[in-house]
């Protein structure tokens, strides 16, 4: 599970086209990384695909930062 953070960060870098150094754990997708609401929907889809996890809409709404995503996946991804 140790690579979850790295895999999440890589998805964020690829989808938002931002520099790796900016994708720190506390970075907010919208406020810090320039995402819009559609980008965040697509990010969640990418997390679902990468980690084989389903993220319901009410949970997705609370995934606002890199840390939120890592925490959700650590708690919910199949081992």
């Amino acid at each position: 599970m140790s690579d979850i953070a790295e895999r999440v960060k890589k998805i964020v870098v690829d989808h938002l086209g931002v520099e790796e150094s900016k994708v720190v754990e506390n970075a907010s997708f919208i406020d810090d990384l320039g995402a819009d609401s559609l980008d965040t929907v697509e990010l969640v889809m990418a997390f679902e695909e990468e980690f084989g996890v389903e993220i319901p809409d009410d949970a997705a709404e609370k995934i606002l930062s890199v840390k939120d995503a890592i925490d959700f996946i650590k708690a919910n991804a199949p081992a």
Partner: peptide
Amino acid sequence: PRRLSPFFIP
């Protein structure tokens, strides 16, 4: 439907 991109329509 859950795999359809939010950018599909635009």
